[in-house]
Each structure stands twice: as C-alpha cells, then as structure tokens.
Amino acid sequence: MASKPRVRVPKKAKAGEIITIKSLISHKMETGQRKDKKSGEKIPRKIINKFVCTFNGKVVFSADWHPAVSANPYMSFSYKVMESGEFEFTWTDDDGKTVSKKAKIMVS
C-alpha cells in the first residue's frame, strides 16, 4: 500500500460551518472472489478495511469497508467545524499496514 492518498479539506471555515471532506486513495481492493486467469487459483482478499478521521486526536468519523467497496476507494463526508485544528486520516489494510495524511483548518 505504497500509495499517497488524497484528501480535500478547506483551509479556512467559519465556526459552526459544516464542511465537506473528500478522500481518495489508490488501492486494488482485491475482493478474494477473483481467480487468476492462468493458474485458476483464487487471488487472496486484500482490501483497505478501515478508514478513520480524527480531529485534534479525537475520532470524528470512521468507516468499515468490505470487498464491495470499489477499487481506489473514494469517501466524502461532513464535519462541523468549531475550532482550528488538524485532521488526521488513516487507511488500514488487511495486512495491518496503515497510511496516514494530515490536513489543517483555520477557524475565522
């Protein structure tokens, strides 16, 4: 999972404003249902099964993904901004490896 994820968070917002956060990461999301065309053997499942968003260290949004989530998973969701701080987004693979990305927001 050596991929750089993308997140879109507004740089600034007003206190009480509900913002939309978008995220995208490249990953095959191998379902475990496919067979190798040549060998005929099942390709083992390998997906990102967990996506977590924290704000100033506290979990504010998360998702459990199953193999029915498309390759290169996209997720958008909302957040009500009350104070300046930092988001951290973490994607966890079936093999336990994680990828993270941070984004700051200023409240005016």
Binding site: I18, T31, Q33, F55, K58, V59, V60, F61, S62, A63, D64, W65, H66, P67, A68, V69, S70, P73, Y74, M75, S76, F77, S78, Y79, K80, M82
Partner: peptide, 28 residues
C-alpha cells in the same frame, strides 16, 4: 447489496461532530 457474493458493503460511523449524517462512496 443483496445479490453480491457477500451482502455487506460498508458501515459508516458518524459522531455529533459530523454536523449532518451525509456521506458518499463508490461501490461494486
């Protein structure tokens, strides 16, 4: 998704901090 090999697609967890319970993703 009732006719997929497994019915589970995703579970999306919100908190009061979400502001609105709204999300989007892409599925198989």
């Amino acid at each position: 998704a009732e006719k997929n090999p497994a019915a589970d697609v995703a579970s999306i967890h919100f908190t009061p901090a979400s502001g609105v319970a709204k999300a989007a993703l892409r599925i198989r």
